[in-house]
Design a protein around this nucleic acid. Structure first.
Length: 426
RNA sequence: GGAGGAGUGGCAGAGCGGUUGAAUGCACUAGUCUUGAAAACUAGCAUACCUUUACGGGUAUCGGGGGUUCGAAUCCCUCCUCCUCCGCCA
């Protein structure tokens, strides 16, 4: 959520961002509506304050009069307050309504994009900011996609998941299950080495938390919702991890804060069917290790680069060919100012698969979260939040299986071997 | 799930209808003193919004929401959370 004052002072910049993010042109007047509502809010606040102040001082007078036995005068004053009371409560109602409307509109405005975010509407307009400069694995004609490898080596079973739950809920088996565990531990250990503190967090969150990071109301339909208890299954560990700092005021020397955590993630998103979502390519439940940083506004872009560099090391250790994309405006998420996507090459599908998304949200989330810090001058300001996948498992597994397939089985990269009691998955 | 009790500033803890944003202690910050530190002393120390060039002024907030009253941290309703006991359970 952007701050009203920011919108007021930077209306043109915000407008430019709306265009970049494909915000419908006929609704560009939302900014003016926001500014109008805020002015109304201020006016109502000012008159309300005056009336409440009068009520307060008269009430004090009434008290003093009663104490000194002047009951008649006191009763006279009491009548006076009744009129004031009426106008104060109607003003309060108006105030409340204006605030709700304002909040409503503010929630609809996406984050402003960073200067370097390219124009564009879809993933086709994303820019490859770091291409793979080595050779791509060529497995020849006999290469088989991971969903067939899964059957061959009994690594995971999607039909079994259908029986237990439904489509998109895989069951990992034997060495496949162990591989999941190995990857989770590998990612967490690497995160710890890089300075991230590990958290194990709830995978159900309340509505406040869902709202805090922007899952509500923007992505309401994409979350599983436990209606009876008003909980949401998390779409990513970003939600609980970042909400740890909801309603917190930090000191400047608390920065940077580095958090990591493993959780299963749940996404309802219906999606399409066919080859692109076959196997592990798209799921309703998947495992992911997330990294989150909370940083001083002046340093958040420096931090974004560090996080990108860190994710890169993970892929290098896993020996997977990857490239980095700078997402165009239309593909940058609602809350993000700048997002880099990592894609690994899956050699049998001959496709690049997104495995990580690293974003700077600037103060967009912290404004909702009320995540602030005291700066040197004692002023309270919004902090910046960033996060990234480090990493999402299924597509990593897909690429590992496909790229490392041999006649004798699937080779396990060196970095993972300490986590497994086999070097070849067969 | 049932029966009781409790939620006040960073923490502890008063107040239980009338200038109380809230005593006191601790913590914290600055200053005095000191070669330095400790101790002592002095001052400061919540958040949001409105208003002001500024100094400042105003309003709201004592778990959340609603109500009673001229006036609520204090009374009532409701929800949430925590504690104790019982039940159930990995």
């Amino acid at each position: 959520m952007l701050e009203v004052n920011y919108i007021k002072e930077n209306k043109n910049a915000v407008l430019k961002s709306l265009k970049k993010k494909n915000f419908p042109a006929e609704e560009f007047d939302i900014l003016d509506r926001i500014i109008d509502l805020d002015n109304r809010r201020k006016k109502a606040q000012a008159s309300l304050d005056v009336i409440l102040g009068q009520i307060k001082s008269i009430s004090n007078e009434v008290g003093t009069l009663f104490k000194s036995g002047k009951g008649a005068e006191a009763n006279e004053l009491k009548e006076k307050v009744k009129g004031l009371k009426e106008s104060s409560s109607s003003l309060q109602d108006e105030q409340k309504q204006v605030k709700t409307e304002l909040e409503d509109l503010l929630l609809q405005v996406p984050n402003i994009t960073n200067e370097i975010v390219p124009e564009g509407n879809s993933e086709d307009d994303n820019i490859v900011s770091k291409d793979w400069d080595g050779d791509l694995p060529d497995l020849g004609e006999n290469a088989i996609p991971h969903w067939e490898l899964a059957k061959k080596y009994n690594i995971f079973d999607l039909e079994l998941g259908v029986k237990l739950t439904g489509a998109g809920f895989p069951v990992y088996i034997g060495k496949g299950a162990k591989l999941q565990r190995a990857l989770i531990n590998f990612f967490l250990d690497e995160g710890e080495k890089a300075g991230y503190t590990e958290y194990e967090v709830p995978i159900l969150v309340n509505a406040d938390s869902a709202r805090g990071t922007g899952a509500l109301p923007d992505k309401e339909g994409q979350m599983y919702h436990v209606v009876k208890d008003e909980f949401y299954l998390i779409p990513t560990a970003e939600v609980p991890l970042t909400n740890i700092y909801r309603d917190v005021i930090l000191k400047e020397n608390d920065f940077p804060i580095l958090l990591t955590g493993f959780t299963p993630c749940f996404r309802r998103e219906a999606g399409s069917y066919g080859a692109h979502v076959r196997g592990l390519n798209r799921l309703h439940q998947f495992d992911k290790v997330e990294i989150v940083q909370i940083q001083h506004p002046d340093k958040s872009y420096e931090t974004l680069d560090k996080m990108v560099a860190y994710v890169q090391t993970l892929l290098e250790k896993l020996e997977l060919p990857f490239r980095i994309l700078t997402l165009c405006g239309g593909d940058t998420s609602f809350a993000s100012a700048l997002t880099y996507d990592f894609e690994v090459f899956s050699a049998a599908q001959k496709r690049w698969l997104e495995v990580s998304s690293v974003s700077n949200f600037e103060s967009f989330q912290s404004n909702r979260l009320k995540l602030r810090f005291k700066d040197k001058n004692g002023k309270t300001r919004l902090a910046h939040t960033l996060n990234g996948s480090a990493m999402a498992l299924p597509r990593i597994v897909a690429a590992l299986l496909e790229n490392n397939q041999t006649e004798n089985g699937i080779k396990i990269p060196k970095a993972l071997q300490p986590y497994l009691d086999f070097d070849i998955l067969d």
